[in-house]
Design a protein around this nucleic acid. Structure first.
Lengths: 191, 191
DNA sequence: CGATTTTTTGAATCATATCAACGTACGTGG
DNA sequence: CCACGTACGTTGATATGATTCAAAAAATCG
């Protein structure tokens, strides 16, 4: 739980006693590639911290999947659109590779907010961080070309291209696999 | 300040005394159409609540503006990508019509967090709400066509089409004004 | 009313989508 | 160890929809 506690400490001060409380609120969950943290139609009732590995968020539309987001080491995982209002989720969250999560239930997160002295502050700062990264993704969708977005993906998740199917990346970039294939060819060739 | 206090009360309990404190932390700001809450390149140092009117977020790219977001009555306005890390803003926030804002400085917001008993909770809940709407916009960009997004805009901001230039809406939808004009023609015609 | 801004329209162009076929890699079972 | 099936990636031809450039029409403002 080291990296989780370190992350909490990055946001707020924790007494040694509180550290134990926090650690006790999370449970370790192992996911093999393809296993789910959240399935479409179900209500998201927990938040997770990625200790190791990678997950993707995807939606099913007209029979095929659209990957819209990735979360990797050190990031928090949750579909807040389902978790916060308690509505059935429109997206699934699935492990892309061998993944270790520290999962906290809604009830336990409430306890963290109330029992830890700076708990609410932690909640606010953590969500602010996730929020800023989603704004950046929005900006990129508005202003960057698919080619640029693919290259940014390469920088953001180095080494990942080799490990995951290209059609995950294609839909994250906002295009079809065939088009990504052509873009890659163009990049490799003339520039 | 009624609607602001009502919104705060929607999230947390406020004593009568705290209500006065909160009201004292905000200042009323009037903006005429075209005036700015935040200009590109400057650091966003406050958060605002829209009492009346409408603002747009836009970026300048290759000489022309791209509107990426609107905030209207009852919503909080801030470029968190600038406000939170204290970096120069890449976007401007501008009044589209006659707008009344209640503005709170970063310092005063900190006071709200610390001096109001459930202040941190309010901060968390308020940003959660904004966050969920940005996720919805992301989802829409990934899965909806420009035509669908335009129709959703009509539903989301009814009556606004008549009051603001179409090229604001076009870039919000993610297309050029000429294309929106053609889409509108298609919708008006065959369906 | 005249000037300026915004919207519409047309024609040509560009990029991605689509449909379909083929190539390649991987893993399983014979 | 090889043959086969499946999943993934590439490629080609064509279609679709948005973009671009340009100009005209319509709306807005002083």
């Amino acid at each position: 739980m080291d990296s989780l506690i370190r992350t909490v400490r990055h946001f707020i001060r924790l007494s040694d006693e509180e550290e134990k409380v926090v650690a006790g609120l999370f449970t370790e969950v192992f996911l093999r590639p393809g296993e789910y943290f959240l399935e479409e139609g179900k209500i998201c009732r927990s938040v997770a911290f990625v200790e190791r590995g990678l997950v993707r968020y995807f939606m099913t539309q007209d029979g095929n999947e659209k990957t819209i987001y990735f979360s990797s080491e050190g990031e928090f995982v949750c579909n807040y659109s389902s978790y916060l209002p308690g509505k059935p989720s429109e997206v699934s969250i699935q492990a892309v590779e061998e993944t270790v999560l520290y999962v906290i239930s809604k009830d336990n997160l409430q306890r963290l907010y109330t029992d830890i002295s700076m708990g609410e502050r932690f909640g606010r700062l953590a969500i602010e961080q996730v929020f800023v990264s989603s704004i950046e993704q929005l900006r990129s969708l508005y202003t960057d070309t698919p080619t640029e977005r693919y290259q940014q993906f390469l920088e953001l998740y180095p080494g990942l291209v080799q490990r995951i199917p290209q059609y995950f990346i294609a839909s994250y970039v906002g295009i079809k696999p065939q088009s990504l294939s052509r873009i890659r060819k163009r990049i490799a060739g003339g520039g």
